[in-house]
């Protein structure tokens, strides 16, 4: 709550000139807002309320697969007790993937913004192109790349560097898949904020006798922080809720994430609806809490 207030306060503080005045234009703005708000109510708020009511339902005694309306917080207890390892893995894998994506994306975005020249367009297409094919297909393609008879696994096996003998069905493959699939969400916001930065300010760092590293640390990086913040959120949030990578690249038991638990409780377990709903809500709450803490700590005035 206070984090929200903090963001709200800092944005309005940073741009006092843009305060809208209650004129006719203001009313038009509200009207334009209406379709979006209606959309959100019908397709987000209503389903969310329904999901919440389902998460509190109880099993109908004697009729598995049927439920009755109730206020049963026991579902949340079941969800957390049975699935805490899945939650831990989700947050850990998503965190690792976000870190890896940042390490890969920053130099790429930097090169695109400052060094690419005429190649900038080509690089941009390379980053975006994977979106033109299905997420599932691309992940299945990774199974081929990492398969036992593929060159990566064979090479590592030949050097005796692969303890289990295979890469797929390990957590490494899951994190690699998550990193790959969400990399563009990290690259694009960082690129956008670097591209907007005035090169003269960075040059000024050198003029003031700072070496390259110091200039980067004190000038370039802070200027790109809004992009970094947005990129980490756009990577971490979907990665934590993802189940496709764990399903396609991971193993049974040891690498399953919360999403797999939700899928299974919803589709496969006969009377799992309330648990699935409780898991979804707990995941949402956990991510929301983490994001608030994170934004509060690192949020800058330029964020919004």
């Amino acid at each position: 709550m206070s984090a929200l207030a903090h963001i709200g306060g800092s944005t309005s503080g940073s741009a006092p000139a843009a305060q809208p005045t209650p004129t006719k234009r203001g009313k038009v703005a509200y009207l334009l807002l209406l379709p979006g708000v209606l959309w959100l109510i019908v397709f987000f708020v209503v389903p969310l309320v329904q999901l919440f009511t389902v998460s509190l339902q109880s099993k109908f005694p004697g009729y598995p697969g049927y439920y009755y309306r109730d206020v049963n917080f026991g579902n949340y207890l079941t969800a957390v007790v049975d699935y805490w390892p899945h939650f831990a893995r989700s947050l850990l894998y998503a965190g690792l993937a976000t870190l890896l994506a940042f390490i890969l994306a920053y130099p790429l975005a930097y090169a695109m913004a400052f060094k690419a020249g005429k190649w900038r367009g080509v690089m941009m297409i390379c980053v975006i192109a994977p979106f033109f094919t299905s997420f599932i297909l691309r992940t299945i393609a990774w199974r081929q790349i990492l398969s036992d008879d593929g060159w990566i696994a064979s090479a590592l096996n030949a050097l005796h560097l692969l303890p289990g003998g295979h890469i797929t069905e390990t957590w490494v493959a899951v994190v690699a898949g998550l990193t790959y699939n969400f990399l563009p969400f990290m690259v694009l916001p960082i690129y956008a904020s670097l591209e907007r930065a005035d090169p003269k300010i960075i040059e000024a760092g050198g003029d003031l006798y700072a070496n390259g590293l110091t200039t980067f640390r004190t000038v370039t990086l802070p200027m790109s922080m809004p992009g970094v913040l947005a990129g980490t959120l756009l990577t971490f949030i979907p990665a934590a809720g993802d189940y496709v990578n764990a399903e396609l690249l991971g193993s049974d038991i040891s690498t399953k994430m919360v999403g797999n638990g939700i899928e299974s409780q919803f589709f496969r377990v006969v009377d799992g609806y309330p648990t699935a709903a409780a898991l979804s809500f707990t995941l949402m709450a956990a991510i929301l809490a983490l994001v608030f803490l994170y934004v509060r700590k690192y949020g800058t005035e330029e964020l919004l």
Binding site: P64, S251, D252, I253, N260, Q265, V269, V270, G272
Partner: peptide, 18 residues
């Protein structure tokens, strides 16, 4: 029967780590 169906589906989900 319905109860077995529910029990075994939940047990099986645990076996495969879901």
């Amino acid at each position: 029967d319905a109860q077995e169906d529910a029990d075994y589906s939940a047990m099986w989900a645990k076996v495969v780590g879901n």
